[in-house]
Amino acid sequence: MNDIIGKVVKGNEKDTYLCEYSQYSNGAFNGPLYTGDFRWLDVNYEQLASWLTSLAHVEKNDNGSHYFALRCSDHQPEHPPAICAQATSGKGFEFGYEVTAENGQKSCSEFVGAVYASPFFNLAWNECKGDTFSPSCHQCNGDGCGAFQCSAFTTWDQCPSGSHECGFQVCVGNLCSQKRLCEWDK
């Protein structure tokens, strides 16, 4: 029950970073507090998505969107609010705390500014100037971007040596990672 959410902030010394968080006690969050003890920084987006899908409870916000709640099976009202993660367009996973409205509707809304950025939810961009190509995709079918040809677990290789990334193609229904666009260096 001591789980907290923090966000990485710059430390006082050059090239140092700290985790800023609030502590839950007596029904309120107090802080900000700081620590140098980081976790999760070596986990990639696909690993985090897989972990949330496997271990977290899937809940529905009052607006119909879904979020993940991380709570134990014996979660009681006096415990700190459950940590939640919501896939936010243009950001990635945004972490916060679950709140319950007076009507009993739960939602993931007390965001703390912690965002786990992802290619799944980045805004599409295209600065390509010529012919483009895409590197190999993994966990995909066909072109890795069309209907039934990709999934949330589809990944793309980096652009090969002698080329550079110049954009992304938005894939079907925003349910798949965006298709990397490359062009050869001139």
Rank of each mutant, 00 (worst) to 15 (best):
C108N: 06
Q76S: 13
E94R: 12
C108W: 10
F120T: 08
C108D: 04
E127F: 14
S89K: 14
N103V: 05
P119Q: 11
P80H: 04
S118V: 09
F148I: 01
S107V: 00
G104K: 13
C108G: 04
E98A: 11
C137I: 02
K129R: 09
F93H: 14
A147P: 04
F95K: 04
A82Y: 03
G130K: 15
P81V: 09
A124I: 01
Q76E: 08
P77R: 07
K106S: 09
C84L: 03
G142I: 00
L123M: 02
N126W: 10
W125V: 02
A85G: 14
G96I: 07
A85H: 00
Q149E: 12
C145L: 01
G92D: 04
D131C: 03
E127W: 05
P81H: 03
C140N: 12
Y116K: 01
A101S: 15
F111T: 14
E102K: 13
G90R: 07
E110G: 02
A117W: 06
C108M: 05
S118P: 03
S109G: 12
G142R: 08
V99Y: 09
V99R: 13
H79P: 02
S118L: 10
A147N: 08
N122V: 14
N122Y: 02
L123A: 14
G113V: 10
G92S: 08
T88S: 03
N141F: 08
G142A: 08
V99H: 05
P81W: 04
Q105W: 00
C137L: 02
P135M: 03
N122T: 09
E78W: 03
A82T: 03
E127L: 13
F133H: 12
G146F: 02
I83D: 04
F93M: 06
G90T: 07
W125N: 13
Y116F: 15
Q76R: 12
P77E: 05
T88L: 07
L123N: 11
C108L: 10
F133T: 07
P80I: 00
A114H: 04
G90Q: 11
E98Q: 15
Q139M: 06
N126A: 00
F120R: 15
T88N: 02
A147G: 06
E98I: 00
E78Q: 12
S134G: 05
K129A: 08
G92Y: 02
G144L: 11
P135V: 11
